[in-house]
């Protein structure tokens, strides 16, 4: 099989393998609620990071607004369902819509900024939002938040167990990954990749830079919004502490660990960032130190993240397998 063929084969087999793995994983995990719970959280982080990798990994723009959109989605859905009594799935749609509209409005002015200035402006936006949430106590419950958020349901079936929620979250995650994958592979996506090299180059290839950036930012906001709504209806309460700047930084760390320009990177990073603190939690106050050292090591020694390290390993293995195969046929 030639390299080109095997790549095409991989392209077709990967989505199927992904769906299959998501389907059977609960069986592999032995139906353990605690492991399924971890898989739910990984799925939620993965969704946020798919959005972020479009904005940042491929668009090259360091946004620290993901926590804000995550919070906007979460509060929108929480308020829709508790104050208006709307079904949770409708709340999810409202969450996506609200986050998307706000993202779209914000994108035009904010994306004119570059690097640290963009990071600062998006960070400031998030902090202002938290203040507004905290102060509109009558609506949002202030800093004590809202409790007893309902579980999503379709007719009589409620997603109120880790297993059912796992399937809900991962259906959304796979859909998001599919959309993102198509964007990355499309002409627009290639243009976006060009963006991270030189904007003038991209523009001269006929890529409408500003428009693409705006849509990527909006899509990132939509995904973060849905993820936020999924998160709060899972843990059944909402308070502003979950949406602080440290969440945005954590999302950037996910891409740094996993690799910022591929979906596999977002996934591997999400797994690492979810699983590590849980594994380290019994190391008392040393847990954060160990996490910090591991993070630093990943940034310094894995230039393209876990995904990059993985794919170069695979490449090396196939190359050596092929060369040994050629030697054998000689």
């Amino acid at each position: 099989m030639s390299a080109e063929q095997s790549r095409a084969f991989g392209r077709q087999i990967l989505p199927v393998a992904g769906i299959g793995l998501v389907g059977v994983l609960p069986v592999l995990l032995g139906g353990s609620n605690s492991l399924l719970n971890i898989a739910v959280l990984i799925g939620i982080y993965f969704i946020v990071c798919i959005g972020l990798s479009l904005i940042f990994g491929i668009g090259g723009q360091l946004s620290l607004a993901q926590a804000a959109f995550y919070g906007i989605g979460a509060y929108t859905s929480a308020l829709f369902t508790t104050k208006l009594g709307a079904p949770v799935l409708l709340g999810f749609c409202a969450a996506a819509l609200t986050a998307g509209v706000i993202g779209w409005i914000l994108a035009a002015p904010i994306l004119r900024l570059r690097t640290v200035y963009l990071a600062m402006a998006t960070l400031a936006f998030g902090e202002i939002l938290i203040t507004l949430i905290r102060e509109n106590r009558g609506l949002t419950g202030g800093s004590t938040g809202l409790l007893n958020l309902p579980a999503p349901a379709v007719g009589p079936f409620a997603f109120d167990t880790p297993l059912s929620y796992y399937y809900l979250v991962w259906t959304v995650a796979l859909a998001a990954a599919w959309v993102a994958r198509n964007i990355i592979r499309s002409r627009i996506g290639l243009g976006l990749r060009a963006l991270s090299d030189t904007e003038i180059g991209a523009a001269s290839c006929g890529v409408d830079v500003a428009r693409f950036k705006t849509w990527m930012f909006t899509l990132g906001a939509v995904l973060a919004g849905i993820a936020g709504a999924l998160f709060v209806h899972y843990i059944t309460f909402i308070s502003p502490d979950s949406f602080s700047v440290s969440f945005s930084i954590l999302m950037v760390m996910i891409l740094a660990i996993g690799g910022r320009d591929s979906l596999a990177g977002a996934l591997l990073g999400a797994i690492a960032v979810t699983v590590l603190p849980i594994l380290l939690a019994s190391y008392d106050r040393y847990s954060e130190l160990i996490f910090g050292v591991l993070f630093l090591a990943a940034v310094m020694f894995l230039p393209n993240g876990l995904a990059g390290a993985g794919s170069s390993l695979v490449r090396r293995l196939t190359v050596s397998a092929r060369s040994s195969g050629e030697r054998a046929s000689d």
Partner: peptide, 15 residues
């Protein structure tokens, strides 16, 4: 150690 993080606390509690 839940590191002052609510989502980590929830995961650990479930575990």
């Amino acid at each position: 150690n839940s590191e002052s993080k609510p989502d980590l606390a929830a995961s650990l509690a479930l575990r």
